[in-house]
Amino acid sequence: MIKTQGLTKRFGRIVAVDKLDLDVREGDIYGFLGANGSGKTTTVRMLLGLVLATSGDIRVLDQPMPRSSRSVLPHVGALVEGPAAYRHLSGRANLAAFDAMAADGRRADRLRRVDAALEQVGLGAVDNRPLRAYSLGMRQRLGIAGALLRKPRLLVLDEPTNGLDPQGIREIRDLLLSLHAAGTTIFLSSHLLAEVEQLCTRVGVLAQGTLVIQQDLDTLQRPTGRTFVRTPDVAQVRSLLDGQVEVHDDDSLLIRVSDAAELNARLVEAGVRVHELSPERHTLEDVVLAATEAGNGRRADS
């Protein structure tokens, strides 16, 4: 759905994005992670043809960008760096205006489309007050509605839950999951690890303009080969599994055993009481921080 090769953008002497090879496949919810200023937004803008690349190729929906903007962008819904709309118009009038800019189909269909998009983001019941009276959360929802207008095959969303309350965040997450289930590929740029962890199937991490990770989330969160155990019978466990207990903190233990089921059986057999037992997994946070630091280190060396 999105493929870039050697994508590079320089602003004067500053390299904002450096030889990026993105690969977003059909059906992904791709989490594009990176700290502020890492080049996420510049990349998103290049994908949409807003910023012109210094060098490298971009293909979106298997067509070259920005050359094929006219045939690609009608199938792409985008939210870039926060929502924006005309302040003197109502939310509905705004969507109608944006929809009419690249008009297709009959007017009645288009108005129905606007209503459907408002309904999807929970603004269906909203009155006709002008946009300047909207709250931040309502604007965010309107921005997402704008992205959904054309029932896009690909959604490119930059910080979609910004400014929403927990309830709103959950609604938008559910909406994205249902769109994904219906076949929409989602490219979600964010600096919120938790959001990406909850939603995404694949993750790309950008650090100072370089892609340091691009991997399926499951692979990143693979087991570490250790098992976490919480028990009141710490001494008993220690004697039973001599030398395999790596970390010991109060009633919590980390044990160098990868097969949690087998460990459980042994503990039960020995009469050890167990509160909790689970295989330890790499967390996205650890992986991202490690990769980002490694990336920074490489840059410092070169």
Binding site: L48, G49, S69, L73, A78, V80, E81, A84, G146
Partner: peptide
Amino acid sequence: QSGTLRYVLVRPVG
């Protein structure tokens, strides 16, 4: 300035 330019261009409007 109002940020609508990017949304107009990705609509897409050439």
